[in-house]
């Protein structure tokens, strides 16, 4: 680490970021673990003292989550029911000690295939806001995370916020998350699923968004399954609509946590179960 700098506003931070060799630090919970035994290099820009990057605002068109918002703060925030999966995912990000420091923005920028925040945010069709000294741009989350630990963040950019559009489909929203690990708490996902449903006034599926994580380099939406659910009655049996073919695009790997074959089986079961739970939530 050549230098540690703690800017107090975004303009100052983006100016520092424009110089080569900087790294962003916020909650810091993955800073040392990701380095392993290597020494930190370059200039570290600490974002934690920049006002406006921390906190959530709910507007008529969209909900804005500051990149430096901690999981604890997100979980405690009053948000529409469509955010229940994201909150549930947050409760499974490490321990409370981690949730108090770790940020939503960090979870996305780390781009771990097992990042708990990604499937719920994909199911919310979230966008990210990226700032450089020159410009501000927005990108769909699905275009931001490019691969295992790879994102579209340029070396002079800072992720400043996650933007979620307000629900467009008319009806009652429900949102559910489930994560499979080798034990209940403090665990990295073998597979995880986020489902957002909207139950129309006629009791059928008006909108469905389903995302699976830890079963491919980047968490994926199951768009074919989403299309197949539309118009079906919202009931506990809805989960049975999911079939193996709907998960064909996943590419689960063998690793220390599970085999690819097991992941694929488990993901299908989880998808069915979470759709069923979510349907119950939408009709309760």
């Amino acid at each position: 680490m050549n230098a540690y700098i703690r800017p107090t506003n975004l303009a100052e931070a983006t100016k520092l970021r424009a110089k080569a060799g900087s790294k962003i630090l916020c909650g810091g919970t993955d800073f040392y673990p990701a380095l392993g035994t290597a020494q930190p290099q370059g200039t570290i820009i600490d974002l934690t003292r920049i006002a406006g990057l921390d906190g959530i605002s709910v507007g008529p068109q969209e909900i804005r989550i500051g990149a430096c918002t901690s999981w604890t703060k997100l979980i405690a925030s009053p948000l529409p029911p469509a955010f229940d999966a994201l909150k549930a995912a947050g409760r499974e990000v490490g321990s409370i000690q981690i949730q108090n420091r770790a940020t939503i923005g960090g979870n996305l920028c780390n781009a771990s295939p097992a990042a708990d925040g990604v499937p719920p945010l994909l199911a919310l069709e979230a966008e990210v806001e990226l700032a450089s000294a020159e410009a501000m741009r927005r990108l769909a989350l699905s275009d931001f995370i490019l691969g295992n630990r790879r994102t579209a963040l340029k070396s002079d950019e800072i992720l400043t916020a996650i933007i979620v559009p307000q629900q467009r489909a008319r009806g009652r929203a429900s949102s559910t998350f489930a994560k499979l690990g080798a034990r209940h708490y403090l665990v990295i996902s073998i597979a995880m699923v986020a489902v957002n449903l909207v139950r129309g006034d006629d009791g059928s599926v008006a909108d469905a968004k389903i995302a699976v994580g830890a079963c491919s380099a980047v968490a994926q939406r199951l768009r074919a399954l989403e299309a197949d659910l539309l118009g079906k009655p919202v009931a506990a049996e809805l989960g049975r609509s999911a079939e193996a073919r709907h998960l064909a695009d996943l590419s689960p790997i063998d690793d220390v946590r599970a085999t690819g074959t097991y992941r694929r089986d488990a993901a299908l079961l989880l998808v069915r179960r979470v759709i069923g739970e979510c349907a119950k939530g939408a009709s309760a």
Partner: peptide, 26 residues
Amino acid sequence: DQGQCGACTVHVDGERVLACLTLAAQ
């Protein structure tokens, strides 16, 4: 020393955090 065990838990502004993952300067 990598955020998994909790033995280093301290409070920062009343919130519990892991001292091993927090830079002192922060």
